[in-house]
Amino acid sequence: MAMARSFDLGRILRREESKGLALIAPPFVYALLLLAAPLGAIVLFSFWTQDFMTINRTFTLDNYREAFSDPLYMELLSRSLRISLAVTAITVLLAFPVAYFVSFHVAPERKSLWLFLITIPFWTSYLIRVFLWRVILAYDGPVNGTLVGLGLIEEPLAWILYSANSVVITLAHAYAPFAILPIFVSLEKIDRSLHEAGRDLGESRVMVFLRVTLPLAMPGVLAAVLIVFIPTIGDYVTPRLVGGSDGTMIANMIQTQFMRLNNAPMGATLSVLAMSMVGIVSLVMIVLTMRWTRGGKSK
């Protein structure tokens, strides 16, 4: 009797399992075919070579050797990393107070209106937005015009356009909502009575923020960091439109290898290197954050 029932339960569970698997199968198979297989192909390609239009399928590490010995590739990779890290730091630091304001200082029924207000600019044509930054930061553009008009600078600043700086500013703008939303979500989850407890126990506002709010918001901050850092390293449009020669990034070189130089294996190699770099740095950030939050708890 008991056996029969557990057998039934097992069958029901299995039916539930197979139903779930059957439902997830279409999107999963699609992602396998159009994401996993192509990513595998890129890795494979990076070990091949190309001579004009014919692909030489013998396994070789030549591409990697070339990538590591060519100063241009190395410079582009490290510059992409530097720019992405700067964008991530600036975006997250600028975004945190905004998320904090919406979570702690805005009435609950108006919160979604504020979030809506923040997300609207993000949904408008990316290309045109980036192009407009070129107008804003131009030598005779509004930023320089205002600064000169206020008498803060003698003549227009030339270094804010066509440089790594303009890439950082433009990307910090483009990824702002991606940083604000995860931080906001984690701030919303914080139990407000913890703040009162901290204050009651005699901590100052700043200490409550540092010892209660910030550690509890770390998962959101980490999510924001990753969601900004990973895609920015592969950004193509911004460096191309506002970067000039000093702001060129690895994605521009990958595009050149594939579309102009007909050297798909080299493009694939650079893609693999860029992805590995992103993966390693992201893992380090995850581990460091986890260690830091845990250290904070044990204190």
Binding site: I24, A36, L39, F45, P231, G234, I254
Partner: peptide, 22 residues
């Protein structure tokens, strides 16, 4: 589910290039 959600964080140029190659 995580794998299906992966394109959310993958640089788009990687998705584009890998599809093009295939």
């Amino acid at each position: 589910v995580g794998f299906v959600m992966l394109p959310l964080v993958l640089p788009e140029i990687i998705v584009a290039v890998s599809l093009l190659v295939v």
